[in-house]
Simulated assay, not measured.
Amino acid sequence: MPTDILTSTFMAFRAKLRSMAAGIAGSEEADDIIHDAFCRLWSRHPIIEDETEALKLSYTAVRNSAIDSYRRSTSRPTVSIEDSCHIIEQEDETETTKERQQTYEAVVSLSRRVLNKRQFEVFELHDIKGLGYEEVAETLGMTQENVRVTLSRARKSIREIYRKTQTV
């Protein structure tokens, strides 16, 4: 019975959920976002008691998936193969590239010293190795929400310390 509640509620509000996802991440991604959100909810379907709870969880799941999709697209913009070949040809170890590499190494080194073990693990898996929240959560045995909070705190610590070292 809970499966019927989740499915019927999700399908009844699908258009509104899609509209919300399109407003956050763009219309091209909206269908993928609501599909991803429904798949995430499916694992929780035995504990969904009624239609109101299913609706609240649906909106929350779609919103979070849309925000994740938007952040991924803005933090890692896609480049066509032709453009990437052109970019690679132009980037012959310029000073800017060397400076970026030095800054990157400084941030990683700083984060190793400043962050506690769990924060660094989350930071490394998500920001350095490029894993998504779900993958990091599975790897470290955490919830996705805990991964988001830990990553946010880690970034804040790194940002504060990095700013202090740059002003000195």
Rank of each mutant, 00 (worst) to 15 (best):
2 P>N: 15
3 T>C: 02
4 D>F: 03
5 I>S: 05
6 L>S: 07
9 T>L: 08
12 A>F: 13
14 R>A: 14
18 R>T: 15
22 A>N: 03
24 I>T: 04
25 A>K: 02
27 S>I: 01
28 E>D: 15
31 D>I: 05
32 D>I: 00
34 I>H: 10
35 H>I: 09
36 D>K: 01
37 A>M: 06
39 C>V: 13
42 W>V: 00
48 I>D: 14
49 E>R: 14
52 T>L: 15
55 L>E: 14
56 K>D: 15
58 S>V: 10
60 T>F: 12
63 R>A: 14
64 N>G: 07
66 A>W: 02
70 Y>A: 04
71 R>G: 03
73 S>C: 02
75 S>F: 01
75 S>T: 08
75 S>C: 07
77 P>T: 02
78 T>V: 03
81 I>Y: 08
83 D>C: 04
83 D>R: 13
85 C>D: 12
88 I>K: 05
89 E>G: 13
89 E>K: 12
94 T>H: 07
94 T>G: 10
94 T>A: 03
95 E>P: 01
96 T>F: 10
97 T>K: 00
97 T>N: 00
99 E>C: 05
100 R>T: 13
103 T>F: 03
107 V>M: 06
114 V>R: 06
114 V>N: 01
115 L>D: 08
118 R>H: 08
122 V>A: 10
126 H>A: 05
127 D>T: 02
133 Y>A: 08
135 E>Q: 08
136 V>S: 11
137 A>W: 07
139 T>E: 13
140 L>K: 06
140 L>A: 12
142 M>D: 10
143 T>V: 13
143 T>R: 08
144 Q>W: 03
148 R>G: 07
148 R>S: 11
149 V>I: 14
151 L>T: 05
152 S>F: 14
154 A>Y: 02
155 R>A: 11
160 E>S: 12
160 E>H: 10
165 T>P: 01
168 V>A: 11
